[in-house]
Nucleic acid binder design. Structure first.
Lengths: 256, 256
DNA sequence: GACAGAGTTCCGTTTATCGGAACGAACTAT
DNA sequence: ATAGTTCGTTCCGATAAACGGAACTCTGTC
């Protein structure tokens, strides 16, 4: 399947740079990739030309640039969204409620997709692209709860002010986390919009590594313990499992 | 500066795909890029090989894939734009003017986000993604002024030709720098677009280490000393402080 | 059932990429 | 100071690798 070598080389160089957020010297790239100095330099120059990479003038080290960051973010939205698409349709069909998919971006949760079920009262708390501090809203809470202890605390700290605006604090998040540990799902009742609640599950591809969260939201009347246990949670579990499976299968094939 | 064509072509293809979340057909890519069918196909095959791109088997359409999405996460490139998002909203609300966020990439300043206030005459000097040599424009000047002496001179030197295009030279930048040291903010009156001016503050996470610059721009009438002192600067200071706090909290948690 | 349109494969030509070597710049150590 | 060392960049000729036209396949349509 005749494929372009230069593109593969560029990707390898980007990989090396991705592992060194503080910047990599040409020599580092050479030793990691086993390319000749000339080749590595040429690839870096080319990546610089298209603004995927830039060179710190003082140290002459290379780092990934914002253009790549944007591309990368869009890619993860598109990809997770595409993977989850069918499952979200099924969930919306079964529950008749609203289904949300969110991905973590550092200490914030970004909604990347939404499906609306048949039930006439719609709960549209999040639009595609909306951001919330980790922990606020069912999906963001699921992402929060999936993090290791240290990362959770770090996120809370960074988001302190923002959390304030929602009336959230560290204690409350820790209580929610405890509830998550107990019940196995993240629940949010009326903390953002009082008449509605939602439950969510993180999509895990490895321990402590959530790539997304899948949530179902509805008005409180449709979110009683019984309905959650009988209808929503089973469906949500099923789809979350499928999606996790698909995502980790996919990641395996890319790791090689 | 002999640079690799294939890499530039790959980037163009990725750009096309980034604009189509639902996926693009080979033909779409061909028409958008003006590559031959063969070339486009070969580039796509290569990108697929490295898992930057995925082909939906059913529809044969191509879309961006997870490996690309992971890059920014692995590099722990946090989206400053996302971090600053609400602060910029507030600034646009309070000032009614245009708010810009720029980040430094070596000797250049890249605009990563913009907000437009309510005032009907809009000053849209910078688009998302626009690049300027450090020093040209309020945001870029704030970044420039935040640098240590040696780095400032290095940047000026590297950008010499580019600065020329804007009618800037080393002297002028040094004068602006002196003004910054005196007043505590970067100011740009009409040097790029004559009818408008802007002021900016660097976002510092450590001494001499600016991660971004926050700027407010408006037509000259709205940028008198009085309004700057009473309305704009206080608001700008407040948001800059908040953002600096968030960013340095975040850096603390990711560095080690 | 032929046609149209899209995607993929083949293959010879040539160009654009490669790597060695030379150059230059910055640091270190003597 | 100055020679030595390391790292980054530039040059250039050889050649491998990427290019594009044409042929082929598949799918869906009239």
């Amino acid at each position: 399947m005749a494929t372009i070598g230069s593109i593969a080389r560029a990707a390898r160089v980007l990989d090396v740079l991705a592992d060194r957020p503080q910047g990599a010297a040409l020599t580092d790239v050479v030793s990691q990739t086993a390319f000749t100095k000339t080749t590595a330099h040429r690839v870096l120059a080319s990546l610089q030309e298209i603004n995927y990479v830039f060179q710190e003038p003082a140290t002459r080290t290379y780092r990934l640039a914002t253009r790549l960051g944007e591309l990368s973010r869009r890619a993860s939205m598109i990809d997770v969204g595409a993977m989850a698409s069918r499952g979200m349709d099924r969930l919306a069909e079964i529950t008749e409620d609203t289904v949300f998919l969110s991905v973590p971006e550092g200490p914030v949760s970004v909604c990347v997709a939404r499906r609306v079920g048949a039930y006439p009262i719609r709960t549209l708390t999040l639009d595609r692209g909306d951001r919330r501090p980790l922990g606020v809203g069912a999906g963001a809470l699921a992402l929060y709860c999936a993090l290791p202890d240290a990362a959770r605390q770090a996120a809370t700290k960074v988001n302190r002010l923002w959390l304030d605006e929602y009336g959230f604090d560290a204690d409350r998040l820790e209580r929610s986390h405890a509830a998550f540990e107990r019940t196995g799902y993240a629940r949010n009742d009326g903390s953002v919009v009082s008449a509605m609640s939602a439950i969510a599950l993180p999509i895990l591809t490895g321990p402590g590594h959530a790539v997304a969260a899948l949530a179902v939201g509805a008005i409180n009347e449709r979110m009683g313990d019984d309905r959650i246990a009988d209808v929503i949670l089973p469906a949500l579990r099923e789809e979350a499992k499928r999606l996790a499976q698909r995502m980790s299968d996919w990641e395996d094939t890319t790791d090689q």
